[in-house]
Simulated scan of single mutants.
Amino acid sequence: MSTTIQQQKIVLVTGGSRGIGKSIALHAAERGLGVILTYNNNPEKGREVAEQIRASGGKAVALKLDASLLSSFDSFTEQLRAVLKSEWNRDEFDYLVNNAGIAQRTLIKDTTEEVFDQLVTVNFKGVFFLTQKLIPFITDGGQIINISSGLARFAFPGTAVYGALKAGVEGLTRYFAKEYADRKIRVNSVAPGAIDTEFGGGKGDESHRQQIASMTALGRLGEADDVGAFVASLLSDDSRYVNAQRIEVGGGIYI
Rank of each mutant, 00 (worst) to 15 (best):
S2H: 13
S2M: 12
Q8C: 01
K9D: 07
I10Y: 00
V13N: 00
I20W: 00
I20V: 11
I24A: 04
A25N: 01
H27T: 03
A29Y: 01
A29F: 03
L33H: 06
L37I: 03
T38P: 00
T38G: 04
N42P: 04
R47H: 13
V49A: 05
A50R: 05
A50M: 07
E51H: 11
A55E: 15
G57S: 12
G58A: 11
K59R: 12
V61D: 06
V61N: 10
A62T: 07
K64T: 10
D66F: 05
S68F: 02
L70D: 03
S72M: 03
S72L: 08
F73P: 03
D74L: 07
D74W: 00
S75G: 06
S75P: 04
S75Q: 13
S75L: 12
F76I: 07
T77P: 05
T77Q: 13
Q79I: 02
K85G: 10
S86N: 14
E87R: 11
W88E: 09
R90W: 02
R90S: 11
R90L: 07
D91R: 05
Y95W: 06
L96I: 08
N99M: 08
N99E: 09
A100T: 05
A100M: 05
A103P: 04
L107A: 13
I108C: 15
K109R: 15
D110V: 12
T111V: 07
T112F: 06
E113M: 10
V115F: 10
N123M: 04
N123T: 03
K125H: 09
G126E: 06
F129E: 07
L130A: 06
K133V: 01
I138L: 10
I138A: 02
G141D: 11
G141R: 08
Q143Y: 05
Q143M: 15
I144F: 04
I144T: 05
N146L: 10
N146H: 12
I147R: 04
L151G: 07
A152E: 07
A152V: 00
F154R: 14
F154P: 06
P157E: 09
A160W: 02
A164E: 00
L165I: 02
L165F: 02
G168Y: 00
V169E: 03
Y175S: 15
Y175E: 15
Y180F: 13
D182P: 05
R183E: 06
R186A: 03
V187E: 11
N188V: 09
V190N: 02
A191F: 02
P192L: 09
P192H: 07
P192T: 10
I195A: 02
T197P: 06
E198S: 10
G200C: 14
G200S: 12
G201P: 09
G202H: 08
K203Q: 14
D205M: 09
H208W: 15
H208F: 15
R209F: 15
I212D: 14
S214P: 13
T216S: 14
T216N: 15
T216K: 14
L218R: 13
G222M: 01
G222E: 01
A224N: 09
V227C: 06
A229K: 14
F230E: 07
V231W: 06
A232V: 02
A232E: 02
A232I: 00
S233Y: 05
L234D: 07
N243G: 06
I247K: 01
E248W: 00
G251W: 02
I253K: 09
I253N: 11
